[in-house]
Design a protein around this nucleic acid. Structure first.
Length: 798
RNA sequence: GGGAGCUUAGCUCAGUUGGCCAGAGCAUCUGCCUUACAAGCAGAGGGUCACAGGUUCGAGUCCUGUAGCUCCCACCA
């Protein structure tokens, strides 16, 4: 017998302990039917908020759904503690300066911090009733992960997919590191178009050129004009002299030039933008470095050396003006590339960097993007769009301190590149040395590669890092492709993209078959919940669980269309709370009639009992269809509708028969017992993926014994098969409609619903309705119910 | 400039391949202490489905165009 009140605070904790102790969610790698999830690792960077609970709950609902379908679900966990956010967090919290410690010490500090944060995170997620396997969790900076990541590097290097080259790359002067295309953001900026004079050496004529970046004049290596430019094509082959610096540069024909832009003649500097980088390569132009790694002008800029880019721009403009070399200026707003982490304008600088070749694999990656099933479907376009626009190979070296090192040394004598042996991984080349002398010159002095790898070079291996938790095989494809990668839309072009790329390069396989793209859980005002800032009035997860329960919080999180953002709305929580109460009360009521009852198909099943079973079948099918598309919110809506029908229409009808078998007969009672126990069981199981605690509590009080299951979460959904009879469905609805009309009569006449009516005549209804006469009479409290032929109608006499 | 999504009741949204008077929840209004539930129950009102065309016997649903909002990408000469 269930208590009158459901004390969620103590009961939720109770079941969480129960699940843990009984290893309810344990994965069996040998199971025939597996479902494997490539869980995203939350970044260790500060406090955990409801946004986390939002997205991980959606993953948990899917994990539970697959488990209820009878699969063994691999739902691992991981922590992303490798990267700038963690670096910053650790420095701030531990009051350590990275530059004043060694890489090894700093990594250990990060691992310690992860350990502390793990407890905090794990507490929140398990309090939310998540069914991930927290006992098998990975860290993205752990020695094991480093081993896998370095192994991946070595293998791809040997395959020829990675190379080190001196090439223009995206550089953040603030963070003093290279960044990847996917880390670039754009910012609207006020700028000025400057029109300046070059001089044609041969004729002494002036050549007009427009530029927003005059500070790069010292790095100007040529001038381009369009070959079909009537005015200027004759200049091709001549020499231009740059203003201020008087550098002589060739004038070259280039069909890329847009005659409509600027003055129609373009100066090419190394490097003002990506076009410059492209042209430098294409025309094999020299590289002049006007900007240094610190974001300041180099000696090349003469008197402007040492100035920051912006300062230099201003100074040069003034000088040009003074010299009469600037003849016009026009303000403009344009978007500049910035580093997404710090907002600093990005420069293109040349430096030896490590690249994973992607441009020559664009086709394969594109096809993989088509082969993966994206939910919602239109998210695929975003991926394909990104691949189409890909312009850079993947630069994986970062001039940072903290990160996974490259397993590489260079011979101090001859410069030969030396890879670590795979069996020695992980290595930190700055603390260890190669085991053998240089194979080329026999030298024994080595320079370590000091760059570290981009975090995505490691995160892109999560399918391998995850499955390593069960295989211990490291870089291995036994369980690849996995079934699901869940993440939000901001990660399509980053994590999803890199994971697909790496999986293709290593195994020529898709990393997973499905990607589920969720939205964000946003604050009531629609702002993004931040990990580092306090969340501005938004309650913490633990506070929310305490006030509304974890089940209700989960209800909020899963009641969304896939891919859509959801706001934290008090209303939604209240709704969920009502639902939870209703589930409790309805179950308590139904179960009170089932003491000692063991469900078996009764000899006669009354029409309205058939009706509610049929309703269940229909809902079940719709539910499965939605969930197969990861549309858990829509599935939940269908389920709620069935549940309220069950409560308001069905139970109201059935309760008379359940209460008074002496009036309606034992058979009528058994029929109601059967239908109500089955449908309640089915409903509870469907709800269990959203609200695991309360459904477990109810299940354990009755169904667990009957089914001999340890937990509702490892039982199976109640599948009553395909819907059988549409007429039963329709006619049952007609009965509900009749009841509703009679209730409406009472309501509009100010009568209590229990008020007795002396006579009701139903005209023109089918036999099904006639067979429900007893139910209708009872639920509406009618003394005399009569049927007549003719136009359909309900007539009531008080 | 290229791509994607959205626009349905006061609010948040459903509406599968075109087909009975367009749905739900919340909010509003009215009634009801009815032996599970007053954080409840019953009932009611409320929509030119963004706009304009088109296809069709029939369009919220398909096609074309327009407008507004959101996101992604490109745009530094």
């Amino acid at each position: 017998m269930l208590e009158k009140r459901y004390d969620f605070n103590s009961r939720e904790k109770h079941w969480q302990d129960y699940w843990r102790e009984n290893e309810i969610y344990k994965f069996n790698p040998d199971a025939k039917d597996r479902y494997m999830i490539d869980t995203p690792p939350p970044t260790i960077s500060g406090i955990i908020h409801l946004g986390h609970v939002f997205s991980y709950t959606q993953i948990d609902v899917i994990a539970r759904h697959q488990r209820m379908l009878g699969k063994s679900v691999f739902f691992p966990f991981g922590y992303d503690d490798n990267g700038l956010p963690t670096e910053r967090y650790v420095q701030r919290e531990k009051k350590v300066k990275m530059a004043e410690t060694t890489r090894g010490d700093f990594i250990n500090l990060c691992l310690d911090t992860t350990k502390e944060m793990k407890e905090v995170y794990e507490n929140v997620f398990s309090s939310a009733g998540h069914s991930a396997d927290f006992s098998h969790a990975y860290s993205s900076i752990s020695p094991r992960t480093q081993e896998i990541s370095q192994r991946s590097f070595i293998e791809l290097y040997k395959q020829g997919e990675i190379e080190r080259r001196n090439s223009a790359s995206l550089w953040c002067p603030e963070c003093r590191t290279t960044i990847a295309q996917s880390e670039v953001d754009t910012m609207e900026t006020e700028s000025v178009m400057n029109y300046i004079y070059f001089t044609i050496k041969e004729s002494g004529e002036k050549l007009k050129i427009a530029t927003t970046r005059p500070e790069l004049l010292s790095a100007c290596v040529c001038v381009f004009v369009h070959p079909e430019d009537k005015e200027r094509a004759n200049l091709v082959g001549k020499t231009a002299i740059s203003p201020l610096y008087n550098r002589e540069v060739p004038i070259i024909a280039n069909a890329d030039v847009d005659m409509e832009k600027g003055t129609g003649a373009v100066m090419c500097c190394t490097f003002g933008d990506e076009a410059d980088a492209k042209w430098q390569k294409e025309f094999n132009l020299p590289v002049l470095e006007a900007i240094g790694y610190n974001g300041r002008m180099t000696e090349l800029a003469n008197e402007f050396a040492g100035l920051k880019v912006r300062e230099a721009r201003e100074a040069i403009i003034n000088k040009l003006k003074e010299e009469g070399l600037l003849y016009d200026q026009q303000p403009l707003t344009h978007l500049v590339a910035t580093h997404e982490r710090c907002g600093t304008e990005i420069e293109l600088l040349i430096k030896p960097q490590w690249f994973i070749k992607l441009l020559n694999h664009k086709d394969e990656i594109y096809k993989a993007g088509e082969a993966v099933k994206w939910y919602p479907e239109h998210m695929q376009k975003r991926f394909l769009n990104w691949v189409e626009g890909l312009k850079w190979d993947w630069c994986i070296s970062r001039q940072r301190f903290y990160g996974i090192p490259f397993p590489v040394w260079y011979c101090a004598d001859c410069g030969e590149l030396i890879l670590a042996d795979v069996e020695d991984l992980p290595v930190d080349p700055s603390v260890s040395t190669p085991k053998h002398p240089c194979p080329k010159c026999g030298g024994t002095h080595f320079e370590p590669e000091r760059d570290v790898m981009d975090t995505w070079a490691t995160s892109s291996l999560t399918p391998q890092i995850c499955t390593d938790l069960i295989t211990s095989k490291g870089l291995d494809d036994t369980y690849i492709p996995m079934d699901l990668r869940p993440n939000a839309h901001d990660n399509i072009r980053v994590w999803d993209f890199y994971t697909i790329a790496k999986s293709l390069l290593h195994f020529k396989k898709l990393p997973w078959s499905d990607v589920m793209i969720s939205g964000w859980g946003l604050s009531a005002t629609g702002s993004k919940l931040s990990k580092s800032k306090s969340s501005g009035g938004t309650p913490t997860p633990l506070e929310t669980f305490k006030q509304y329960s974890a089940d209700v919080t989960r209800y909020w999180a899963s009641n969304a269309s896939l891919g859509k953002d959801v706001y934290i709305k008090e209303e939604e929580f209240k709704n969920g709370f009502k639902l939870m109460q209703k589930i409790w009360n309805a179950s308590r009521f139904v179960l009170s009639f089932l003491e000692g009852y063991v469900p078996k198909i009764p000899q006669t099943l009354l029409p309205m009992d058939e009706w509610i079973l049929e309703r269940y079948r229909v809902t079940y099918m719709k539910f499965m269809s939605y969930l197969s598309k990861y549309e858990m919110g829509l599935g939940l809506n269908e389920l709620e509708q069935l549940f309220w029908t069950f409560c308001d229409d069905y139970i109201e009808i059935a309760k008379n028969r359940l209460y008074k078998p002496e009036i309606y007969g034992e058979e009528a009672k058994e029929s109601a017992q059967y239908a109500s126990s089955m449908v309640l069981e089915g409903i509870l199981k469907l709800f269990s993926i959203y609200m695991p605690h309360i459904t477990e509590e109810i299940y354990q009080s009755y169904y667990a014994d009957i089914e001999g299951a340890k937990s509702i979460h490892i039982s199976k959904y109640l599948d009553l098969g395909e819907p059988k009879d549409e007429q039963v469905l329709k006619q049952g609805d007609v009965v509900c409609d009749i009841v509703s009309q009679i209730r409406g009569y009472k309501s509009s006449n100010g009568l209590s619903l229990k008020e007795e009516l002396s006579k009701v005549t139903l005209t023109g209804y089918a036999d099904f309705v006639k067979n429900c006469a007893e139910d209708i009479k009872a639920v509406c409290n009618i003394q005399s119910l009569e049927f007549a032929e003719g136009e359909k109608g309900v007539s009531i006499e008080a």
